[in-house]
Amino acid sequence: MSTSYTLENIRKEKATMQLLWIGMVSICMFFAGLTSLVFVDNMEIPSESDWFLYSTVIVLFSSLVYLIVSRNIKRDKPVSFLIFMVFILGLIFTYCQFQGWSDMRNNYGIIFTGENPETGQATPKEHSYFYAITVAHFAHLIFGLIALFITFFNALRNKYSSKKFLGIKLAGTYWHFLTILWVYIYLFINYT
């Protein structure tokens, strides 16, 4: 293997990371488009359920764990269990989200669409909006979970080393991005 080939490889790795970064910029624009609505219209988004606080804590914790993953792989320490842990935390986050949505629906009467059975009033768009933005985040999270699972699977098969861990970097960057995105959305729905 010649040096130029490795060089080309390094450049390709850099390019792949950049692909992800620009993709994330794109996703940011998608959410910017959604959030701009609130500022144009001065909406007040509901955020009653406590479950979303729990999910925020869990997703932050999962990101911390992933930081350890990144540190370990650079020193060739085992990572597969930690990645699995992040994946499980991701599933718990998912559980919290679903609990939160059903909590909002059942206990606070905040529904996505349809008529309020008591008042007969149509759902205000603030309520629909709450579901739109949280579910949109969840849709992006599914890809994060898939990425984590593939990374975990590859880590089990010892595919990564301190010299070659692009997969771990990619999955991690995206996962941290999802965390930041969720924290943003959480603050956003709470403070508007």
Binding site: S26, M29, F30, G33, T113, S128
Partner: peptide, 25 residues
């Protein structure tokens, strides 16, 4: 393209909700 197309996507998404699910965006 990368900066503006996602905004059309969010715009279209809310239109889909209005059309198919009866929301009022």
């Amino acid at each position: 393209g990368v900066l503006s197309f996602p905004v059309l996507l969010s715009c279209g998404l809310l239109l889909v909700f209005d059309r198919s699910f009866g929301t009022s965006f």
